[in-house]
Design a protein around this nucleic acid. Structure first.
Lengths: 299, 299
DNA sequence: CACGTCCATAGCCGATGGTTATCACAGAAG
DNA sequence: CTTCTGTGATAACCATCGGCTATGGACGTG
């Protein structure tokens, strides 16, 4: 009998959560899909793996027998992929990491690099800053292999990602602005102000940083379109508008006559490490999993 | 990235044969299907596994890296299934082995039993002789879990099997029959004789033992319909007809006034151990693989 | 008793994994 | 040189699989 490693992942997830709905969430699939797959696995094995007792899910003896074996299968496969990744690395493979804004945030980038290098010492990494016309920082046109970008990602089903930071959004203003005297502001305070906007090509991300969804019927005035941190800084001190910015990106703008203030009633922003869904090269996954271990440690 | 163990089996087969067509045969799939799956695996891994050089197929470095890991994955899965099978056995699971005729053949049955018992000491085996109305010896109605039967199996896609013996066919005759003086006979010698036939319900198997395909335009005369070895023996000594019989089954009939003679120009018969394709219970597979090891040893 | 929680079922749909038929090409044979 | 043979790749097609949403039914709980 054959198995799909996916089904083993599903099984392990349910065995760990002992809760189908939660396990399904963790696996990013629907609960019925998970139920069905587990049922099919049980049918294929000819043995029940879980005892569903209306209110509780428990492993059967067969489930307890299978669990360590399933984990081992998954480990062996991980190891196989790592071996292939090391081979790629040894052949001089190079990974291009794109970013929309420097991830900064207390050495996140070097921390990932060192974890990654520990496993794939020979792999080469190349970092690229990309202008904001491309909200995927080079993933879309495959000039980057992975990218640090902001949700929402356009064409979301084409990508996979890992949330690296969830941060409140601030508003950036020139020092002389009346709101600069406040400690915090509300979105309502900003609705009549001109905004700096991302280029049209940024799609839903442009809307997101203009808080379009949250400003109800009040369309924003666009003071300027900006393509990188420097342009943004200049537009701010010029008084051409203000803009929302992730708390962690505030340092990029507050270098002289610009300050940022928390906006207390907008949804926080999420910085993610993303890659193309169809790009299953082990080295790419290797970088992602180095980042995942780090993100885990931080949470 | 996920894998299907089937794809790993395919990969290992090609790596061992270094020949797609032969590997496909071994895997019981078509060559294009195999080519496609290997291509997809390579694509998913982002690395070529084979170098196809028109006349030769060779492993790439990535292929050589993956091969031992793939084997290990498959081993771990085998072990997982064996563990589940042992669990089933420990719970008192019972396997029913049906047979159309006693397999005999120098202790094949005890040999399989002892191999099987070595791995699953607690499993119970039950042997059943079934009359010839059912050419699947109880598989069709699930009263048997595995069965020793003869090809061709009706509804072939519902079953899987393992060839346990390939044997020339003899003709069984009463001692006084004119052909009994010959050492061997040809099918042509038999075309005008009345034949003992399996019941209609035996389907293609009835046709097979009447050699319908091989007698061209000469339909057989049916002397009697027989349902088990005893009936057959009696019909033979009664002179109601003669019949083809696998060499290994000759001892069942040659107990007194019946002899058998090789028929030199009919295709040999194949005795198989069969089970239902959808029955993937590890214990069933365990019995089959005990039989497989034995069959290997014999060939 | 009404409600919420949670797993199962039903119906639907695109992707996957198989099939057969055919191609393109290399080497062997004539 | 042409033809035949063996091999892997490609194309077109089809059933099954793995996902989704919507809904059901059996509990505990307020």
């Amino acid at each position: 009998m054959d198995v799909h490693s996916r089904d083993l992942r599903y099984f392990v997830a349910v065995a760990e959560e002992l809760h189908f709905t939660r396990a399904a969430e963790r696996l990013f699939i629907s609960q019925p899909a998970l139920s069905k797959q587990i049922r099919l696995l049980e049918k294929a094995l000819g043995a029940d793996l879980f005892e569903r007792d209306r209110r509780a899910v428990a492993l059967t003896e067969a489930g307890r027998t299978l669990l360590p074996q399933a984990r081992r299968m998954l480990e062996v496969w991980d190891e196989a992929q790592a071996a292939l990744a090391r081979l790629e690395a040894a052949r001089g493979a190079r990974l291009v990491i794109g970013m929309s804004t420097s991830p900064g945030r207390g050495g996140m980038l070097p921390a990932i690099r060192s974890r990654f290098a520990a496993e794939f010492p020979q792999a080469k990494l190349e970092l690229r800053q990309l202008p904001w016309q491309d909200p995927t920082a080079g993933l879309a046109d495959a000039t980057s292999d992975l990218a640090f970008i902001w949700l929402p990602v356009p064409d979301a089903e084409r990508y996979r990602w890992l949330v690296m930071a969830t941060e409140p959004r601030h508003v950036a203003l020139p020092l002389g602005h009346p709101l600069a005297t406040r400690d915090t502001v509300k979105l309502a305070d900003l609705l009549d102000e001109p905004f700096l906007a991302l280029p049209e090509s940024a799609g839903p991300l442009r809307a997101y940083w203009l808080a379009l969804d949250e400003r109800a019927e009040r369309p924003p005035r666009i003071g300027a379109v900006v393509h990188n941190p420097d342009e943004t800084y200049e537009a701010l001190v010029d008084g051409r508008g203000l803009c929302l910015v992730a708390a962690g990106n505030a340092p990029l703008l507050t270098r002289g006559d610009v300050v940022t203030r928390p906006v207390t009633d907008v949804a926080p922003s999420r910085l993610v490490l993303a890659w193309r869904a169809e790009d299953t090269r082990p080295l790419v996954r290797g970088y992602a999993s180095a980042a995942a271990k780090l993100a885990e440690g931080r949470n």
